[in-house]
Computed example of a mutant assay.
Amino acid sequence: MYRVLHTVVPPVAKAVWRPHITGLHHVPDTGPVILASNHLSFADSVVIPIVVPRKVVFLAKSDYFTGTGLSGAASRAWFGGLGMLPVDRDDSAAAMESLQTALEVLERGEAFGIYPEGTRSRDGRLYRGRTGVAHLALTSGAPVVPVGLTGTQHLQPIGARLPRLAEVTVSFGAPISVGEEYAGVPRGRARRDLTDRVMTAIEALSGQETAGAYNDGPPDA
């Protein structure tokens, strides 16, 4: 299903929305890589896989995979076909399970997409990154490619059921590799420092104003 959707959807979507894409050469063709992006819209998890030639795996809430009837089957086919994996967000252990799932994706040599802010920004500002992205990079050794999205909040505004026409830009930055600079550094400090480096790169790509705080708003979809 992924091969079918990725053959059909990207050309159609690019023809309709004509996204402006820069720095795509920073995404390696093969091998494990973490795509760390800002988060403005539900559509972000569709936009990134559309513009990246290789498969990018995101996590999606398990409700999208448990529906019944034709609508449930269509939902499973769509989200599964986009390369998304289900996660139970109501489970108290979901965060750790999500990180383990992400590590398994990276161990297979695939690309994993993550939003360090944790949830969508409802005011357009860039919020402080949570350290899960650094945990994945430091544990797996995979490079982090920062991604800056602009305009996706207009593509599918919060509350909108269907996407709209909007100018969208997707900017990829130079990979941030985990080197020897973190050898011997306390785990917590290393995660915080690497996460801040990633968020600084995302800020430069997206041009967003920084909020200087964590995004503790309502969880998104």
Rank of each mutant, 00 (worst) to 15 (best):
G188D: 08
A211L: 10
E107N: 10
A204T: 11
R120F: 05
G31M: 01
D216K: 12
S171I: 06
P49Q: 04
G67M: 15
A201Y: 03
D123I: 04
R187H: 09
R192W: 11
T7G: 15
A201P: 03
I34N: 07
K55F: 10
D193S: 15
G141F: 10
K61L: 08
M84G: 09
V27Y: 03
L5W: 09
P175V: 01
K55H: 14
G80F: 08
E104V: 00
G188T: 14
M84E: 11
I21G: 03
H6C: 02
E117Q: 05
G129Q: 03
E97Y: 06
T7R: 10
A95P: 01
A43Q: 01
S71F: 10
V16E: 07
V185M: 15
G31H: 09
L5C: 04
P186D: 15
G80S: 03
F172N: 00
T30E: 14
E117Y: 05
S62D: 14
R187M: 02
A95S: 06
A93Q: 13
P10W: 03
T7Q: 08
K55G: 04
S75E: 14
P49S: 11
P53V: 09
E110T: 03
Q153L: 07
G141L: 10
L126C: 02
S45L: 14
I202G: 01
Y182R: 14
A183S: 14
Q100T: 04
P163C: 11
